[in-house]
Design a binder for these strands. Structure first.
Length: 874
RNA sequence: GGGUGUGUAGCUCAGGUGGUUAGAGCGCUACGUUCACAUCGUAGAGGUCACAAGUUCGAGUCUUGUCACACCCACCA
């Protein structure tokens, strides 16, 4: 017996443990069907589950469970990311509480500490994914720093290096002075602020009283100035080109050069050029072979090349202004809106800094990655995200992959004392090559930089499957079927996976990429800790159950649009689960039990034929929508079927059978109800795996677990509106009319049915009569007279005798208007169907649809005409 | 500056290829607890589909323009 109430918290954990223990998430390698695989976007090992994960992983789990039920070999490959900066920061913060810095420990000890931390607290998010119901094959869980993946990283790195696609260069990079590492362009956030624009002047060398006027937001960088640029088209100022000016507060004299970077209408028209601290100036500097003077230390304090050594940029700025004022060179200071770059992790102001860094030649790797999308080997869903992808890929910059951190993959680079670089997979090999190169044993020093986390994530699609080893899993599951992720990750991850995979595997990492939106709060605002509007999925799960949260995510996911988390809606899906539970209880109480020998083809009763047809309809709708990644349509189709069709009508109508005396009918209905309930459990399972499993296990003995139950194949569909649809329509109309007329529910009505097709009444006579009894209506067929209220429904019209309520005049007007509209439509159908090019060019399905509409409209027209005739003279 | 998307009921949102009376959930109103379910049922109110013009027998849907909003990229001496 089912309990009166369903308790998700008990059931969900119990059921999940059984799945995992029984190995239900492992792929069935004996299946002769296709393989289906997804690699999970690896969450940061430091992370806790947020609503974004809940969405992302629910969608993946739905696809995985659906495909598993289709009988395919299914792998959902889980794992976590070592998340270089994030993890290092977390551990450093912990150490800081004990008053220790990572430098106190030293590199080796620190890394040991991080590993220990990971052992202890790194598994949180995976536990939470289990709570959500994610059916990953946990026996294959990987970590971007584990032995195998590290081997993949080293191998690819060496290969890229030897192909000339990784190189070292001294370049201007985004420098995070707090973390003291380079970061990539993508890790820099531009924030709007109100700053100041400073106007001052540099004296022209050798011309007393002559000046060149400068405007800048960062006066302290003047110590790195090595030129002043003016456009050669600048009529007012071009006479200064070729002269020299004295750089105040220094003993340097710099050239005034011609360069179009200086826009005559911006600022003063003359730009100070600081090649070592500004990306544009860097380009100018390269063009004119200017000296690059670095004025900053790694912590963004000023260095010995300035008079303000050791001061922060802000302090130095103040000092510089004061000094310029003393010299009488300062002219004015204005407020100025500007954007300042911040590090996304450290939130420190990012400084462009000249450093030695390692780069991946992304523009070269992008070529194959672009092509793979152009030729459809990898398809974005929805398609328009490929525009975003192309846009970025076509303008891609070299990718800075070196990080001056400790936690991460140390680069397989060794230097000889003279700076010669050896890039090999092992230290031994590097020494061997060095000995060969120098003709003697030499001393090597390993590069201390580690790789950008996204370097190893970029290999995820094949490294987790065993590469560089040629494994069965790699053969079976690569390329993966689909990648599911948010649009904010396209550049970080999707693009890099594409580049790395095309380079190494020569094939795409995934055939499709489903892009979903962001999870927002109820009002559509971005969730953030500082706003305090975050919702913890774990709390939601405790409150409503994982099934409710999952169903919400599925039902809200409409191809790339953002999802607003709504507590009320999640509660609604909890109610839906309760509804299903109670429907199952009803079935159980009325002896509806799954039996092996039931053949749905052999049912006799209209009611049962009808619900079976509806079940097939719902099934194919779910199937079609899941195949098209239309999650909300799929979820809504099940929802509508369970609540709106099965509970609201089938169960209600079945009562007249169960409370009646016909044992044969009763048995057929019991079997049908059990069969349809099973069908519901199957098609709902990908969305609500827990409650469906709990019911499956409790309702009957089974040959197969629900998680492996075969997905039903629906063949030809009976789309004819049956007598039951007719009866439902009738009842709805009666109820509606009764309410309109303000007749209390207890009022006994006599109703005249007129114009009915006799066979309708015969087919479902018992049903209609018993329903009428429930609705307190006495059904008669008779002539219609003047004092009748008309109700219309698909079977025709019915009348209730009441005096002076109905306005036949208005009714006639309404009918004739409808008739003329219908005429228009019929004309359209006819025109379209007689149009050669439409019939020959449009897909068969569309033409059929059009024909169906036409015949429906014809039928409708006939009915309306009959109805009109009937009331014509009243 | 370049790009992408959005504007539909009080709220949050659905509305593949134009086609019956524009839908859902929540909220609201009225009524209803007899044995699946009050985490419920029945009925109802509520919409100039941002605005304007166009194509069409027919436009929420297609075209053009306008207005508002959101996001992404680049730049701002």
């Amino acid at each position: 017996m089912l309990e009166k109430n369903y308790n998700p918290n008990d059931a969900e954990q119990r059921i999940y443990q059984d799945w995992e223990k029984s190995g239900d998430f492992k792929p069935d390698m004996r299946s002769n069907k296709d393989s289906f695989s997804i690699v999970i976007p690896p969450p940061n090992v430091t992370g806790v589950l947020h609503m974004g994960h809940a969405l992302d992983d629910t969608l993946q789990d739905i696809l995985v469970r659906y495909n598993r039920m289709l009988g395919k070999k299914v792998l959902w490959q889980p794992g976590t990311d070592h998340a270089g900066i994030a993890t290092q920061m977390v551990v450093e913060r912990q150490l800081a509480k004990e008053g220790i810095s990572r430098h106190d420990l030293g590199r080796e000890k620190f890394i040991e500490t991080v590993w220990k931390w990971r052992e202890k607290s790194g598994g949180t998010i995976c536990k939470q994914l289990r709570r959500l119901g994610a059916s990953c094959d946990w026996s294959r869980e990987r970590f971007t720093m584990d032995e195998g993946l590290s081997r993949a990283v080293v191998k690819i790195f060496v290969s890229l290096y030897k192909d000339g696609l990784i190189y070292k260069a001294k370049k201007l990079v985004n420098w995070d002075p707090k973390l003291m590492t380079a970061v990539s362009d993508l890790e820099v956030l531009q924030k709007e602020t109100t700053g100041k624009m400073y106007y001052y002047k540099y004296p022209i060398e050798g011309e007393e009283g002559e000046f060149v006027h400068i405007a800048t937001t960062r006066p302290e960088t003047m110590f790195g100035d090595t030129a002043v640029a003016i456009s050669k088209d600048n009529e007012k100022l071009k006479h200064l080109i070729g002269k020299k000016c004295k750089l105040p507060l220094t003993d340097r004299v710099i050239d005034i050069i011609a360069d179009d970077h200086a826009d005559p209408v911006k600022g003063t028209g003359a730009v100070k050029i600081t090649p070592a601290h500004d990306f544009n100036d860097f380009e100018v500097g390269k063009r004119h072979h200017l000296e690059m003077i670095n004025i900053l230390n790694e912590d963004a304090t000023l260095n010995e090349n300035t008079p303000f050594e050791g001061l922060s940029t802000m302090e130095a700025r103040q000092k510089t202004i004061e000094a310029l004022e003393k010299l009488g060179l300062m002219e004015k200071i204005e407020d100025h809106p500007m954007v300042v770059p911040y590090g996304e992790r450290s939130n420190a102001v990012i400084e462009p800094l000249m450093t030695d860094q390692w780069f991946v030649d992304a523009p070269k790797l992008a070529v194959a990655a672009i092509k793979a999308v152009e030729n459809g080997d990898m398809q974005f869903v929805p398609k328009n995200y490929e525009k975003t992808y192309f846009e970025w890929m076509h303008n891609i910059q070299p990718w800075c992959i070196s990080r001056q951190l400790w936690w991460g993959h140390q680069m397989p680079i060794w230097y000889a004392d003279d700076g010669t670089i050896f890039c090999e997979e092992t230290e031994q090999e590097a020494y061997k090559q060095a000995e060969k190169h120098f003709g003697k044993k030499v001393n090597l020093t390993r590069e201390t930089d580690v790789l950008d986390t996204w370097f190893s994530s970029g290999l995820w699609a094949f490294s987790t499957l065993g590469w560089p080893d040629q494994t069965e899993f790699l053969d079976t599951f690569y390329p993966t079927s689909v990648l599911v992720t948010g649009f904010d990750i396209i550049f970080f991850w999707v693009a890099r996976m594409m580049m790395m995979s095309m380079y190494q595997m020569k094939r795409v990492p995934f055939k499709k990429c489903y892009i979903h939106g962001l999870v927002r709060d109820e009002q559509g605002r971005k969730m953030s800790k500082s706003k305090g509007n975050t919702v913890d999925p774990m709390i939601t799960i405790e409150k409503y159950g994982a099934d409710a949260l999952r169903f919400f995510m599925a039902a809200s996911e409409t191809q790339g649009r953002d999802v607003n988390v709504s507590d009320a809606r999640i509660a609604g899906y909890r109610n839906f689960a309760t509804k299903l539970w109670n429907a199952a209880r009803f079935c159980e109480m009325n002896g509806c039990k799954y039996t092996k020998d039931f053949d749905p083809q052999k049912v006799q009763m209209d009611l049962n034929k009808w619900i079976l047809a509806k079940a097939d309809e719902a099934t194919s709708e779910v199937t079609r929508n899941l195949n098209d990644f239309r999650f909300s349509d799929a979820a809504n189709a099940v929802y509508q079927f369970v609540w709106g069709t099965f509970c609201d009508w089938y169960i209600e109508l079945s009562k007249s059978v169960f409370y009646g005396q016909n044992e044969a009918e009763k048995k057929e209905t019991q079997q049908t109800a059990a069969f349809v309930l099973d069908r519901i459990l199957i098609i709902l399972h990908p969305f609500m795996p827990f409650i469906t499993t709990e019911l499956w296990n409790n309702l009957a003995e089974r040959d197969v677990k629900l998680i492996h139950a075969p997905w039903p194949e629906v063949k030809a569909q009976n789309t004819n509106a049956s007598a039951i649809d007719w009866a439902i329509d009738l009842i709805t109309s009666i109820r509606s009319l009764r309410a309109d007329l303000n007749l209390p529910a207890g009022t006994k009505l006599t109703m005249f049915l007129d114009g009915l097709k006799q066979n309708h009444l015969d087919e479902t006579k018992q049903m209609v009569l018993s329903l009428a009894r429930l609705e307190n209506i006495e059904l008669l067929t008779t002539e219609v007279s003047k004092d009748m209220v008309q109700g219309a429904f698909s079977g025709g019209v019915f009348f209730i005798p009441l005096k002076g309520v109905v306005d036949f005049e208005a009714e006639r007007a309404r009918l004739s208007k409808e008739l003329s509209e219908l005429e228009g439509r019929l004309k359209g159908y006819k025109a379209k169907l007689s149009n050669e090019s439409f019939v020959s060019r449009a897909p068969q399905k569309v033409v059929e649809e059009e024909k169906r509409r036409q015949s429906e409209a014809l039928e409708q027209k006939q009915k309306l005409q009959e109805a009109f005739e009937r009331i014509k003279d009243l």
